[in-house]
Amino acid sequence: MTPSIPVPPATVLRLDQLSRRRAGRPAVRNLSLALQSGQVLGLLGVNGAGKSTTLSMIAGALRPDSGSIQLNGEDFLERPELARRLIGWLPERAPLWAELTVSEHLDAHGRLRGLNGAALRQARSAIIERLELQPLARRLAGVLSQGQRQRLGLACALLHRPALLVLDEPANALDPVQAAALRSLIREQSAAGTAVILSTHLLTEVTAVCDRVAILHEGTLRHDAPIRSDDQAALERSFFEIAMHGATDPARAA
């Protein structure tokens, strides 16, 4: 019998010296990090730390002023069409087209991501079933509750089975049961090899599902290290130290 050789996880995302100014001030400064397939990165930071700007650039919705983004080894800034297949993005507050139904949203997102015909129908049915959206399928997005909007946004992000899932505060407006279901979904995606970036304000969310945590402060990366689920107190210390005093955590060097 041939011994199985473990396949090293591929680098899905690599940011190098990424910078972006917004409203006349630097929102993200010289941000560099890499993410392997199956890895779940928690992105922490106080409001205005640059989390959403970073995620918008990774998702392809915003161009950086300088630096580079590589997706599966290819230059994403040169080839923004890579986003179509490789990235699923749930922006903060899940923006939707109010006049379309849940089902029509999934169809529209599927087509924008290159799915058509039987492949689109199959993907739509699978995600509707997985996120328990059947009772909402014919409902207009404009009348959904915030929690339901988040679930639909998540469904749109997952529909085309992306290699990188970018979630901007996905637990917002979810009840505890839905939040637990979200954690389970993230773990499931990670096990299937999807790299996940999760921006959140909830430290418990990070320790529950993430392998690694990055803390942003005033647009710069102050902490980037693996986390252990039993080490929430240490994470809290690092977070508050950075948030209150802007200190650079020694763990970053690790």
């Binding site: 998702a59 919705a61 890579l82 179509r84 990235i87 924008l112």
Partner: peptide, 14 residues
């Protein structure tokens, strides 16, 4: 106004 424009950009649509 609805914030849905970035969804199109993020789908790689020029």
């Amino acid at each position: 106004r609805n914030g849905t424009l970035p969804l199109l950009f993020a789908a790689g649509v020029p």
